[in-house]
Design a protein around this nucleic acid. Structure first.
Lengths: 337, 337
DNA sequence: GTGCGCTTTGGGAGCGCTCCCACTGGAAGC
DNA sequence: GCTTCCAGTGGGAGCGCTCCCAAAGCGCAC
């Protein structure tokens, strides 16, 4: 038997009775609403203390039509993409901002079909006051669902093929451009690219940034060589690159994991980093600092991303109409380039 | 203006009316309860489809006194401890298990005072059907709150100084013992230890396992040298160790981050791993595999930890009385030892 | 003394669902 | 023929809160 409740929860009625006031007055006192005399307010406070009263959030939610919770949905068929520390840091930021607005955080990993179904239900049933949506693939059904949702939706990053009404993103194009320009400024001329999945907007935008920088420097951009954001795929891509273009002297990888994989392959091929091949990553996760050599990479404000998504959502919930936000990146120069 | 709702949500009453039945019958049909004729059941289903009806979870929660959500609380004064990929993987496991039971996951980072206060309110107000509690420090006020909570509580790991009624833990003592025995079996005799925080039960248990193994092998255990589970602290501890005991030939670090720090310090001191100093970690996070050399470490089933916590909680919510669980660890032997 | 406007108060009607219970009518048992 | 039973049904009373609104109380200008 689980914790036979010591005594039933006291209700607002009981508080009111004990304080010698009506339920209305007690409610107002509790919510710091006006139109309550000082004496009654204090009487209510006393009764609350004596009874150990805590308002029932469900009842309040039913009456106010506000659940007091915001959901963060992380999409993707593979649940382990969530193991990427990236999301953990987004959550830290979002959690802090939601705390300030007194909203709870519901986390939905929409990996399995079942999970996806539950997200759809959440969206349709107003099981939360608003939703933050992340990591959407091309044609993700969640995008359509979000359109039809009966609550505010903020996107983290932009989905492929559509520009949502409200989103927070990082400057993927600018970051990739800066990374590539850095390689060029070091005198590298045969600068290759290891793209992320090109069915994500981040993957595409980072390739665009690379391409812009190469063209701007009068160099030939490499065609997109696609990885899937894992270390393994970075290592494989680098191997292919060395085989096909032995003279490559710089590599921009669309994230740190792949950059670390590339680092490993370069070393195993007997070449030095950065002397023979300079490598730049993207993200600036912990792994960039402990890589050998430490990875030059595009720093993105991950916690700020979460924080700003949450703030935007709070604004929407409060009936405001915030404008989309693109957060700046900056290059963290370390030993690898 | 945020999304002027296209039309008000249809309610169960409207469904019932459209289907030509009473609200009771509609409710029963919706919940697959008995005592509904086939014809009416189908009529209700049709009405649901036509109206695009979705039950209001809040109203249901109020009536059933079940919120349909479980909370995962991660304690700790520093919110960034949550950035440890460890928690992300716990969440993946917990989320999957909760999905199966149709429970939502609420995530509470009880870092700030404000966050802690909100957790307390959650615990006292039955804002969730149950709670999973992790990463508790000595004297964490959350432990007391959990005792007084009006809902089931499952601990992840055991808090210092008390054995909760329900918990899931990994075999910290056994894992640490096995790690140390491995070092001894390699012929190492001066095997030192870099402990984790000794105000956590995991930190203490891992030291106990180390000590047991040393004594069992007839060797002198080193006194506890405490780190705080970060790479930096591991590096510092290792430096101190080399200064004081230049002849140390093996190190057991209580987690991977500290082991990686130790690795770095050993190399910077001009010694070789594992030839001069063999190093073993604990956790088997991604970092263990990409470390140089790859880290021999105690693998713990992190996702299973989350999954089992969630399952235990579900059992409690369903009125059962599950028994505490200690999950086994195993040594993942790589190049560092 | 009357009327106006203000704050303070409590009654009551929801919010949308579940679930107890009383009722119906037809099948089964005697 | 009667009672007994039970699947099927709908009415209605909650769950615990918010919030509208009418009424009461009171000071103050006229």
């Amino acid at each position: 038997m689980a914790e036979a409740a010591p005594r039933r929860h006291p209700t607002l009625d009981e508080v009111a009775e004990r304080a010698g006031v009506s339920r209305s007055v007690a409610s107002r006192a509790l919510n710091n609403a006006p139109h309550v005399s000082r004496a009654k307010r204090e009487a209510v406070e006393r009764a609350v203390r004596q009874l150990g009263y805590v308002p029932n959030p469900t009842a309040r939610a039913l009456a106010t039509r506000q659940t007091g919770a915001a959901a963060l949905v992380v999409s993707g068929e593979d649940p382990s993409i969530f193991a990427d520390p990236f999301f953990a840091r987004v959550i830290v930021g979002a959690s802090a901002a939601l705390d300030e607005a007194d909203l709870h955080l519901m986390l939905c990993l929409a990996a399995s079909d079942r999970g996806r179904k539950r997200v759809e239900e959440l969206l349709r049933s107003r099981g939360a006051d608003g939703v933050m949506l992340m990591a959407l693939r091309e044609d993700d059904p969640l995008v359509r669902m979000a359109d039809e949702a009966r609550m505010p939706v903020v996107f983290g990053g932009r989905p492929v093929g559509s520009v949502p009404r409200w989103y927070v993103d990082v400057d993927n194009v600018g970051g990739a451009r800066e990374a590539t320009e850095h390689l060029v400024s070091l005198g590298r001329r045969r600068v290759a690219v290891i793209c992320g999945r090109l069915d994500t907007e981040a993957g595409r935008a980072r390739y665009r940034g690379y391409r812009d920088a190469m063209l701007g420097a009068g160099l030939d951009p490499f065609p997109p060589l696609e990885g899937d954001f894992t270390e393994r795929s970075g290592a494989a891509a680098m191997a292919a690159l060395l085989a096909e273009h032995p003279d490559v002297d710089g590599v921009f990888a669309a994230n740190d994991n792949m950059a670390v994989g590339a680092l490993r392959t370069v070393r195993e091929a007997g070449r030095r980093v950065p002397a023979d091949v300079a490598v730049v990553g993207f993200d600036d996760l912990t792994v960039a600092q402990i890589a050998d050599p430490p990875l030059t990479t595009v720093h993105q404000p991950v916690e700020a991303l979460g924080r700003e998504m949450a703030r935007m959502l709070v604004a929407l919930v409060n009936g405001q109409d915030p404008t989309p936000l693109v957060l700046p990146t900056r290059l963290a120069v370390r030993a690898s380039a």
